[in-house]
Amino acid sequence: MRLSQQVYDALREHGEQTYPHECCGVLLGRFTSEDGRSVNDVEDAIRAGNTRTDSAHNRYNIAPHELVKIQRTGREQGLDIVGFYHSHPDHPAQWSPTDFAEAHWIGCSYVITAVEKGAARQTNSFLLTGATEDDKAFQNETIEVTGQLDPGLEPELKADIA
């Protein structure tokens, strides 16, 4: 998946701002193909509210009516929902059994940022592959950040330096 430095920073900052609660949001963009492989090209990250106020430190849920509106907004801009993001406060940026069980948007990217004591650390993306609920799987996905000030640094290193 590919996104700009601005969008990348924005979704990580969202996780810092909601700490110690999980943040969540929707990634709007386009499904593209390069060299025979699909690339989820993200144009914008739309913040969403976390409805899991009962357990916001380790659960998130985006209200469907909010998704409907975001999908509508995206369509007006010629963009599709290509992924989602959320944070793991004081937990690794790895998908959890809950993340997997609740993942239903096959073909979309699920971006997770670990937020440690309020500071964004590792950000990983997992592509939900498969054809049905029975054979779906999360696949590690490279995050290509465009427009970086120093392209020689990995995003995680940049975050640590910052």
Binding site: C24, P64, T98, Q139
Partner: peptide
């Protein structure tokens, strides 16, 4: 609109564990 739900969170599997 047909909208699959979006939810999940926390309690991560061990870092570095197979993702699929």
């Amino acid at each position: 609109s047909i909208i699959p739900s979006i939810a999940g969170g926390g309690l991560a599997v061990q870092a570095g564990a197979p993702s699929a």
